[in-house]
């Protein structure tokens, strides 16, 4: 039982995998599926670099066991293609080293999905979950606001 056969639904595809119960979703995405876009920054739920989208909501993939993701739709940064939020990050210079970027974008992407009308307070509440050490956050704020529905 320490090893389990599971099926993970990631970026629209099913993957049959053998995992340890103790393996985090982040570990399995990176080491078993080669999806290295989700980054380890703390493995402790603190930094947000590993954020993916699970059933439409942001999830720190280091805080979830792979086995908990069975039956759920997992989307990683590799599952986004030319979305407005990616475009906005590029145009607004919303990253420098880029290490926090996949996590930030996945969080923003979930926010846009869940609250397309989010106000400043909601944006802050959501985006506090990720750390960017390079930028000043102003650029990220501009990027996400440019994609959210404006009233």
């Amino acid at each position: 039982m320490a090893l389990q056969q599971i099926t993970l639904h990631v970026n629209g595809e099913d993957h049959n995998l053998t995992v340890r119960s103790a393996d985090t979703l982040l570990f399995v995405l990176r080491e078993k599926l080669g999806l290295t876009g989700s980054k380890p920054g703390c493995l402790n739920g603190d930094c947000g670099a590993c954020t993916v989208n699970v059933d439409g909501w942001p999830m720190k993939s280091c805080l979830m066991l792979a086995i908990e993701a069975v039956g759920k739709q997992v989307t990683t940064i590799e599952g986004l293609h030319n979305t407005p939020i990616q475009q906005a990050f590029v145009e607004e210079f919303a990253f420098q080293c880029g290490y926090c970027t996949p996590g930030f974008i996945m969080n923003c992407h979930s926010l846009i999905e869940q609250h397309p009308d989010a106000d400043g307070q909601t944006i802050k509440e959501w985006l506090e979950s990720n750390i960017c050490r390079c930028t000043s956050y102003i650029e990220i704020e501009k990027a996400v606001k440019s994609v959210l529905r404006k009233d």
Binding site: E31, G37, P40, E78, F93, F95
Partner: peptide, 23 residues
């Protein structure tokens, strides 16, 4: 000019690779 950084699209698509991404 605000030329967009050369590696920008790699960085927003998860393709940008850092040392630990090579295994």
């Amino acid at each position: 000019k605000s030329v967009i950084r050369k590696e920008a699209w790699d960085k927003v698509s998860g393709r940008a690779r850092y040392t630990n991404d090579f295994q």
